[in-house]
Nucleic acid binder design. Structure first.
Length: 359
DNA sequence: AACTCGGGGCA
DNA sequence: TGCCCAGAGTT
């Protein structure tokens, strides 16, 4: 079976028209690849357009203010990608004379570029013969060739990379890599693949042996863990307090309201008691205006239960002034927030209640 | 090798 | 609801 030729033929009549395919600018290709890490094409497209408009060059990205950068990335998730892009841009300016390197090995040295992205950029932008092995490729190769090695094991990663290296078209490596990804997205989908008119169905191990739903093999992942967040939306005149989150866990570099985090749920009365002991509310004469029901926010590895507490204070203490930024409430929307907070701010009637000037 | 990092779409 | 998406960095 000539896998490469069959695949390229399929691609000839099924290729998706995607914005980053109409350019040979390696910078644009780099941005698109990072945006698409663990992200569906349709979700990434609007972010791609905004990103290259705001930061059209490596230099512009290297100089990007962190808040502006995160605001452009807001809502896309995996925020370390945005921070690493900026670091990578600085790296390219300092270590590569502002030119994006054109080999797989050098690309791997850039922050945020791993084996997949390095191969994608090297093949798409520079015609290098190196396979870009992503989730689609694991799935297709596991099914067609009957590979049962778990795709999230290091043995599996190596094995699939070697297999893809044998299969890749030496004449059109970039087109091959694009093709196999589109094939995975459109034809050999995770659920209900279109096997009936698949060009490989005659040879496909999984199809021939009725093992489509068993391949690829993946390891088991542990269930998500509950966390309980209590956000304090503090009204101080027409101002409120926020800070850039710097904890080395979720939402690093995004903003948040003063937060009290605990590993269990509290009721309204207990929250009222707890308020007295919070350092950022000491001597502020807080008056509770509203306590929300817990808002459930599901991440891949966490379930966050967030309670939003709206309160008014008469005085701002040292902790608030030192640890938080005091901003006009109307300017909240200009700061980058995680979806959880952004969604709550947009919800009625809370937003109106918080923003109302005359209360 | 295991863990951590988001959010959304779809059967 | 569970799965998985153009994965990578850290421990």
């Amino acid at each position: 079976m000539d896998f490469s030729n069959k695949l390229l033929k399929w691609y000839g009549s099924n290729a998706r028209d995607l914005p980053w395919r109409n350019t040979s600018n390696p910078y644009f290709i780099w941005i698109s690849e990072v945006i698409l890490q663990q992200t569906r094409v349709n979700q990434g497209i609007p972010y791609y357009y905004r990103f290259i408009e705001e930061f059209p060059t490596v230099q512009a990205l290297a100089d990007a203010p962190i808040d502006k950068l995160m605001k452009v990335w807001q809502g896309l998730g995996y925020y370390s990608r945005a921070r690493n892009l900026k670091e990578g841009a600085i790296q390219i300016v300092n270590e590569f004379h502002g030119q994006i390197p054109n080999t797989f090995d050098e690309l791997l040295k850039i922050k945020g570029i791993g084996p997949y992205s390095a191969a994608a950029i090297a093949s798409f932008a520079f015609g290098r013969v190196v396979p870009a092995v992503d989730g689609n490729v694991y799935r297709i190769l596991a099914r067609v060739f009957g590979v049962f090695t778990p795709i999230d094991s290091s043995k599996g990663k190596k094995e699939f990379f070697e297999l893809a290296k044998e299969l890749i078209s030496k004449k059109e490596p970039g087109r091959f890599n694009q093709a196999i990804i589109d094939f995975g997205a459109l034809q050999c989908t995770p659920k209900s693949p279109l096997c009936i008119d698949c060009p490989f169905n005659e040879y496909c191990y999984a199809y021939q042996n009725n093992l489509i739903s068993s391949l690829p093999v993946k390891g088991i992942k542990k269930p998500p863990q509950n966390r309980f967040f209590y956000y304090f939306m503090i009204r101080y005149g027409n101002f409120t307090f926020v800070r850039r989150r710097s904890e080395n866990d979720i939402w690093n570099s995004l903003y948040e309201f003063p937060l009290w985090e605990h590993n269990k749920q509290f009721n309204f009365d207990e929250i009222g008691q707890k308020i007295k002991g919070l350092s950022f509310l000491k001597d502020t004469e807080p008056c509770i205006r509203y306590i929300s029901e817990p808002v459930k926010h599901v991440l891949s590895h966490r379930i966050i239960w967030a309670t939003f507490i709206i309160l008014k204070i008469e005085k701002a203490n040292y902790s608030l002034k030192a640890d938080y930024v005091m901003i006009p409430i109307e300017e909240l929307s200009t700061y980058p927030f995680p979806r959880l907070i952004d969604g709550y701010l947009a919800a009625e009637p809370t937003a109106k209640y918080f923003i109302n000037r005359y209360m």
